[in-house]
């Protein structure tokens, strides 16, 4: 466990010492923009606009961070040959991957937490009150980003960062639309296209399950069974992807 912790901490340190935290500046500007420029135009809907903008901003920026940093995580170690140092030490390849993943989770967790603080301050400033239930969609964003993170790690172990980023982004987009894929599958008559789309539906992460932004924006009741289902589904998806990635990584030659 100490080895995994060391690798995770190293990955976290790399993220912190690079320009990752600039994402927070972008987020502050987004919140300031929505408070100062949009709110006066929204005829009493200012709170909803801020919630919508704030939560979407957290999701967009953290997904982008997961894709941009996540897809270079392993690739950079191989390309710059820092992997030689770790591979020659008593570290299992699975431990290396898990350490990288957890380090990235720590980094994304910190960035999302700081954005949530900025979001909370924005809501407090505008509404004068803050309900903690607003933090539930933020938690679900973290869960969603954790899934993106494992997909990025998978592609980082297989391909170049550019290809990995494109594939991961496609997974994210298609995962967001997975309910529509299911609807399409239900309408199609039996045939190869239906089978292919069905396979895609099961392979892609179902991001729709993890989205609670609407409940937060429109103050509707939280569907707790949906939350528990999303949590278990994401946990299982991450575990399965981690196992597939380490199976591939186990056989890999570092040239």
């Amino acid at each position: 466990m100490r080895k995994i912790r060391a690798i995770a901490y190293n990955t976290f340190t790399e993220g912190i010492r690079s320009k990752t935290l600039y994402a927070l500046l972008i987020y502050i500007m987004l919140i300031l923009f929505s408070v100062t420029a949009l709110v006066p135009l929204t005829l009493g809907e200012h709170s909803r606009i801020l919630r919508d903008f704030g939560l979407s901003g957290i999701e967009f920026l953290s997904v982008m961070l997961a894709i941009v940093i996540g897809t270079t995580l392993v690739y950079k170690e191989v390309e710059k040959r820092t992997i030689y140092v770790i591979a020659s030490k008593p570290v299992e390849r699975f431990e290396f991957l898990l350490g990288k993943y957890l380090g990235m989770e720590l980094l994304l967790g910190l960035v999302i937490f700081l954005m949530a603080v900025i979001f909370t301050l924005g809501v407090l400033f505008l509404d004068g009150k803050f309900t903690f239930i607003l933090l539930l969609p933020v938690t679900m964003i973290f869960v969603k980003v954790s899934v993106i993170n494992i997909i990025a790690l998978f592609f980082s172990s297989l391909s170049s960062p550019v290809l990995g980023a494109v594939f991961t982004f496609c997974f994210y987009l298609a995962g967001t639309l997975s309910r529509d894929i299911l609807r399409l599958v239900q309408r199609l008559s039996e045939g190869p296209l239906k089978i292919i789309l069905k396979i895609f539906y099961y392979l892609l992460p179902n991001m729709g399950n993890m989205d609670l932004k609407n409940q937060a924006v429109y103050d509707t009741a939280v569907l707790w069974p949906q939350v528990w289902w999303a949590l278990s589904y994401s946990g299982a998806y991450i575990l399965a992807m981690l196992m597939i990635t380490s199976l591939i990584f186990e056989k890999k030659d570092f040239k």
């Binding site: 190293n10 340190t13 790399e14 010492r17 690079s18 710059k80 040959r81 820092t82 030689y84 140092v85 020659s88």
Partner: peptide, 12 residues
């Protein structure tokens, strides 16, 4: 093990 022309984590 010391690799050839080593490159290490330059942010550390």
């Amino acid at each position: 093990f010391l690799p050839e022309s080593p490159y290490f984590y330059d942010y550390l």
